[in-house]
Design a binder for these strands. Structure first.
Length: 859
RNA sequence: GCCCGCGUGGCGGAACGGUAGACGCUACAGACUUAAAAUCUGUUGUCCUUUCGGGCGUGUGGGUUCGAGUCCCUCCGCGGGCACCA
């Protein structure tokens, strides 16, 4: 008869959670122990932008990190688990423009609100290391870094065409332009010529690419994205000459096809095109028409390949043929040399162009099947190619490069897609660039003694121009070199600059000594052992941070070239979406399910269109507020839910029923703990645990099964499969529930099992576990206890249910000893009626027997 | 177009090449209750069968194997990244 423990009052999560959050803060439970001799472990979640409120996506990110941090502490590591704020940025300034509130006040206010939310979720942070990137000490040091980069040539100013976001009225880096639009504003980006500060990311292009191979702890997906972004192409440059000595340098990754070149094509932006346009009206008209074109992807996809003959003719270096030179719209100035030799037979674009303008197509690579299909871009054997004939394409590539070098018209060349990182932003709310412009001395870096360059507090946001530039006095200063009048740089740094080294700042034990890159501290804590964040930063932040580590090494600040040992990218939190027929979004509480399974608007009975699960967003009205959930169900229930069911790297489908289920689970374990206490389960009993072998059979089985649970939970945490962690913990709870009536008579065993159960659940639901831990009389707090060890010998069972197959089909199971031999197992198995039926009187020709695993008869 | 990843019940998802569907959600039933809620206990891939049991089942078609959700090839579908990149 099952024992009824439903009378236990409900678990009072709100007072319990507050009590333990308070306890952790007061006891500095998660402070970083600098002097410990234990092995270090640095867990870091991507820090937060103080937008105003914590959203569920944050909860997921930080819960995953917190589980790892708490687990590693229990495993005996000394853990660094900090939190901070990525506090500079446009939204605060835009809000200031609207509301009149100063960005600093707004940011501090948002941080206060969000910190309270974070505390209410019970994350185990070392809050003593908290800081915001808008703190003066932080950005002052950042200016020092900028100066060091400047001295090393890693930061430089140049006039160039930049991406201008007309809505944010600000320059964007290439990485911040998605499909021709600004990453934040979504507005189509314009091209402008501006003098801008850049960081020389290309300096480390090769290292950024190659080091990816030494990051086994990163998702393959992210590494692939970075490889594509860096975009290394190896080939050679090649000079073509006209009769009158004009030289055109082209770049090719397939120089072996040079014998198939039938014309040259240069970009409309090529300098030569510009010169020709001065005298040739047709070229001028073509270029002007080209510049009107959009850069939007849909436009480019549909864009026909068109061009104009320049009339120039160049000499083929090997055949002496005269090749025409075209200006063509499909040749990009910002890649390679802005000029190509075209091989229509082996390139789709060249082929389309050649067909349109009646240019010859000359095949030089024979496909292995000799199929005539053109253009052919695969591997094969060289033909019609003079000294390359008969070579494979790969051999020919080497041979032709050697030859071109030898005759002095070609050079081996590598091009990267990666460009230098533009970091100037024409905005107030960012780190000022510590540079002045002096009429006499030009661009002059400030001396370290002049730092910090502080943001002026008294600014007005007019909505036009840069507030720093508009400030009446701020920018006027003296030149540190000559002492004459000078003007400060009024651009501020891209906020991705701020987030590129914050993880190093967290390492510093005493930020008051002014050195935020204290080498000894960084050596102690770096690299980040586990970094966790959204995949949307796969390129932007993660590439910049990697660049920074290398650049800081070059400047002698640190010695760690790769910052993140293991990276975990969690999926998005999604929720159902509902719309009216006219397309307006509806809140979930506005709709009602009808008996026929369709949905209607609760108030009016209008038809509702049920959309897909989409990423939670205010505009789609499918967000849920973490505050509300913590208030109604508690942080533990939310934490349990957000890691249950779905693997953390996949998108998480929100469901209110699922959350309810986790709330029931929290209460279920609470009733278990209360009932156990009433049975006399307590800390003391643990020491009286008898040898497991001496236990009654069902209790012994429970104990042994629980050893398996400990192993399963441990393995699942290690593989970051938090959904499996929860499943295995539930298994453990269920098996204890199944033997509730035995608890009182077996206090010792149940005490040990319950103790370990609390430890297993504590990283996910820390509050309820602390409460149970203290209720059952355990010492200290569960946060300070060690991770349970399982007894390996009990994982092995001696008697098993062995599957019996005939021809690979399951026909039954038999109970055998784990190491019972084939003869004995075979005899038992053959007696199964189902096996005899399947064999139908035949004698098995072959028996496959794997001890302790399976037996399979093949007739 | 190129490069990744993924297709398993009504749903989220488990499964060292060896008993497919753990764990949970939903739904249904039973116990408790005057009743409801809560709780506890069952059932819940599908088809045939009163039962026992059996057939079919991991996107499609093939292959390797005693044995395939898992390995190999083909195709289809979904998601993501890159993209006139020479």
């Amino acid at each position: 008869m099952p024992i009824d423990i439903s009378e236990t009052g409900p678990y009072n999560f709100s007072s319990t959670e507050l009590k333990w959050q308070d306890f952790w803060l007061k006891n500095d439970s998660f402070g970083t122990d600098y002097s410990s001799s234990k092995q270090k472990y640095y867990v870091l979640e991507m820090f937060m932008y103080p937008s105003g409120k914590v959203h569920i996506g944050h909860v997921r990110n930080y819960t995953i990190g917190d589980i790892i941090a708490r687990y590693k502490r229990a495993k005996g590591f000394t853990v660094l688990h900090p939190a901070g704020w990525d506090a500079f940025g446009l939204p605060a300034e835009n809000a200031a423009l609207k509301s009149g509130m100063h960005p600093d006040d707004l940011t501090r206010k948002n941080i206060a609100v969000m910190k309270r939310q974070m505390l209410s979720l019970g994350f185990s942070y070392d809050w003593k290391r908290e800081f915001a990137t808008c703190d003066k000490e932080y950005y002052a040091f950042q200016q020092k870094i900028f100066l060091a980069f400047y001295k090393k040539g890693l930061a430089f100013k140049k006039k160039s065409e930049v991406n201008w976001d007309p809505v944010d009225r600000c320059v964007l880096a290439n990485e911040q332009v998605i499909d021709g639009c600004g990453w934040r504003s979504g507005a189509p980006v314009e091209k402008r010529m501006l003098s801008q500060w850049f960081l020389k990311t290309t300096e480390f292009a090769d290292e950024l690419l190659e080091e990816l191979d030494n990051l086994p702890g990163w998702p393959e997906k992210v590494k692939t994205m970075q490889r594509n972004w860096i975009g290394k192409s190896e080939g050679c440059s090649l000079i073509f000459k006209t009769e009158d000595g004009e030289e055109i340098t082209v770049f090719s990754t397939r120089p072996e096809t040079v014998f198939g070149a039938t014309f040259l094509a240069i970009s409309p932006d090529h300098p030569l095109t510009g010169r020709l346009a001065e005298t040739d009206g047709r070229i001028k008209a073509f270029v002007e028409n080209f510049k009107k074109g959009s850069v939007a992807q849909e436009f480019l996809d549909k864009q026909e390949k068109i061009g104009v003959d320049t009339g120039l003719r160049v000499r083929h270096p090997f055949t002496d043929e005269k090749l025409p030179v075209y200006v063509a719209n499909f040749v990009l100035m910002n890649y390679g040399t802005g000029a190509i030799f075209a091989t229509p037979a082996h390139d789709e674009r060249d082929y389309a162009f050649a067909l349109k303008y009646g240019l010859p197509v000359k095949r030089v690579v024979d496909s292995p099947q000799s199929i005539a299909e053109l253009p052919y871009s695969g591997d094969g054997v060289m033909v019609n190619s003079g000294f390359l004939d008969g070579l494979s394409a790969v051999e020919a590539k080497e041979a032709v490069i050697l030859k071109l070098c030898e005759i002095g018209v070609g050079r081996r060349k590598v091009f990267f897609r990666l460009t230098d990182w533009g970091v100037s932003r024409q905005r107030y709310w960012g780190c000022p660039i510590p540079i002045v412009r002096c009429d006499r001395c030009g661009i002059v870096p400030l001396e370290e003694s002049d730092l910090p360059v502080s943001l002026p507090a008294d600014v007005t946001f007019s909505g036009s121009g840069n507030p720093l530039d508009n400030h009446p006095t701020w920018k006027y200063t003296k030149c540190p070199r000559c002492g004459g009048d000078a003007i400060r740089e009024t651009d501020t740094l891209d906020t991705f600059f701020d987030s590129s080294w914050y993880f190093l700042r967290f390492c510093v034990n005493d930020p008051n000594n002014g050195n935020l890159l204290e080498k000894r501290d960084i050596a102690r804590w770096m690299t980040v052992d586990q970094y966790i964040g959204g995949v949307e930063h796969a390129i932007l932040h993660l590439l910049y941070a990697r660049f920074f580590s290398k650049a800081l090494c070059e400047c002698g600040f640190i010695d760690v070239r790769e910052p993140f040992e293991n990276l975990f990218t969690q999926g998005m939190v999604c929720n159902a979406t509902y719309r009216r027929e006219n397309g307006d979004w509806l809140f979930p509480e506005e709709v009602r399910k009808k008996p026929d399974g369709e949905y209607e608007v609760a108030a009016t009975g209008e038809k509702v269109i049920v959309g897909h699960f989409e990423k939670m967003s205010k505009s789609k009205k499918n967000v849920v507020d973490p505050d509300e959930i913590v208030k109604n169900y508690g942080a533990d229930a939310l934490r349990v839910f957000i890691v249950s069911d779905t693997p953390p790297d996949r998108d998480f489908p929100w469901s209110d029923e699922g959350l309810e289920g986790c709330w029931r689970f929290i209460n279920r374990v609470w009733r278990l703990f209360v009932y156990m206490k009433s049975c006399g389960i307590c800390a003391e009993e643990c020491s009286r645990m008898p040898k497991a072998d001496d236990l009654a059979s069902d209790i012994q089985k429970l104990y042994k099964d629980f050893q398996r649970t400990i192993k399963n939970v441990t393995d699942s945490v290690e593989e970051r499969a938090m959904n499996k962690v929860m499943a295995h913990i539930r298994d453990g709870v269920n098996s204890v529930y199944a033997l509730l009536e035995e608890a009182e008579a077996n206090k010792e065993v149940f005490s040990v099992i319950v103790r370990d159960l609390i430890k297993l659940l504590a990283p996910i639901a820390p509050h309820i576990c602390e409460e149970a831990w203290s209720m059952l009389g355990f010492e200290k707090s569960v946060s300070e206890s060690s991770w349970p060890e399982y007894e390996k010998k009990y994982l092995e069972v001696s008697v098993i249910n062995l599957p019996v197959q005939v021809n690979g089909k399951l026909r039954g199971t038999i109970v055998v000893d784990i190491d019972e031999d084939e003869k004995s197992v075979s005899e038992k198995a053959l007696q199964l009626p189902s096996v005899q039926a399947a064999l139908a009187g035949r004698t098995p020709k072959k028996t496959i027997f794997i001890k302790g695993r399976i037996i399979n008869f093949a007739p």
